[in-house]
């Protein structure tokens, strides 16, 4: 009984230390645990894979640094997939707190790896405030919402955009989103304007988004770091030359596995302590155990 109480009353800082150590070890010594792909991610990858060179894809950076560890690997993998296939990429951002920076960092970093030219193969139209209003207006005319790209070049003077005026000129929109923005793409852009939508969501949002995936309102869904890791695996299998670059989320899954085991151990321990304490109270004739 005393032992159970002692374990139950363990200082939570020991838990933090164990989790930190459990996370640090795989970062310092990657284990390469296997990552199994799921249909939700495979569907998105296959759709992207089905496009012909020159077709247009919109990638929306709808997240900030607070979700970057989950969504950056997805962004890198999706952009690499677009460039390796020769797709034209229109990049926008709808998240105010750092979406602009995330977009610039990811786009220019990945673009450097390929023989692509800004304005011809890809364009960054920047951040725009307004969320739903922006998505709605882009169905009519993207140039009204984004009159210039981030270099200050007029929309009408950008070669890539000469035949891109609204969603009907874009094959798919991929939103890398935190919070509710991915949902907007599904319930507005897909459901009302018929635009195929793929979403890379934070793990917190992912469970809700499966309903939209199941209803066909999303072409595919990458949920959290696991979703990113799956896309990296699929990309690496299809394009082995990208394997060494697209593996950030795959490495992260080692940490996830170890830390999850620690958390599961603590959950089991907590429940066992509770059961022992309860049976002990019952034996002692206390009231609490019988309630």
């Amino acid at each position: 009984m005393d032992d159970a109480q002692k374990i139950g009353g363990i200082d939570k800082r020991w838990v933090y230390i164990l989790v930190a150590v459990g996370a640090l070890i795989p970062i310092l010594m990657p284990m390469g645990l296997p990552v199994k792909t799921t249909p939700a991610v495979e569907q998105l990858f296959d759709r992207m894979e089905s496009f012909e060179p020159g077709q247009v894809v919109m990638v929306s950076f709808d997240y900030g640094p607070s979700s970057a560890p989950e969504l950056d690997p997805m962004a890198d993998a999706v952009l690499r997939h677009c460039f390796v296939k020769g797709l034209r990429v229109v990049v926008i951002s709808l998240f105010p707190l750092g979406g602009d920076n995330q977009a610039k960092q990811a786009l220019y970093k990945v673009a450097e790896e390929f023989p692509v030219v800004e304005g011809e193969d890809y364009v960054y139209l920047g951040y725009k405030d307004g969320g739903l209003a922006v998505l709605r207006r882009m169905a009519e005319d993207i140039s009204i919402v984004f009159p210039k790209d981030t270099r200050g070049v007029e929309y009408s003077e950008i070669p890539l955009l000469q035949d891109v005026w609204n969603y009907s000129d874009i094959e798919i929109s991929v939103s890398l989103s935190t919070g509710i923005i991915g949902e907007w793409w599904a319930i507005l852009v897909n459901a009302q304007f018929g635009q195929p939508v793929g979403v890379g969501a934070t793990a917190v949002s992912a469970p809700k988004y499966y309903a939209y995936l199941k209803a066909g309102q999303m072409v595919g869904l990458m949920g959290g770091m696991k979703g990113g890791a799956e896309y990296e695996v699929l990309l690496g299998n299809a394009y082995p030359e990208l394997k060494s670059r697209s593996n950030v989320a795959i490495k992260g899954m080692d940490v996830q596995s170890i830390v999850h085991l620690i958390i599961i151990a603590f959950i089991l321990m907590g429940n066992l302590v509770y059961l022992f304490s309860r049976s002990e109270r019952k034996r002692a004739g206390g009231r609490l155990g019988s309630q």
């Binding site: 696991k226 992260g252 940490v255 996830q256 830390v259």
Partner: peptide
Amino acid sequence: CFGASFGYTIMARISLLIGRLTFLVE
């Protein structure tokens, strides 16, 4: 449903920890 959401939330929080620890180390 709550269990699934909670599991995913843990994964999200651990991802943030991974991001920060990776920055500190690398």
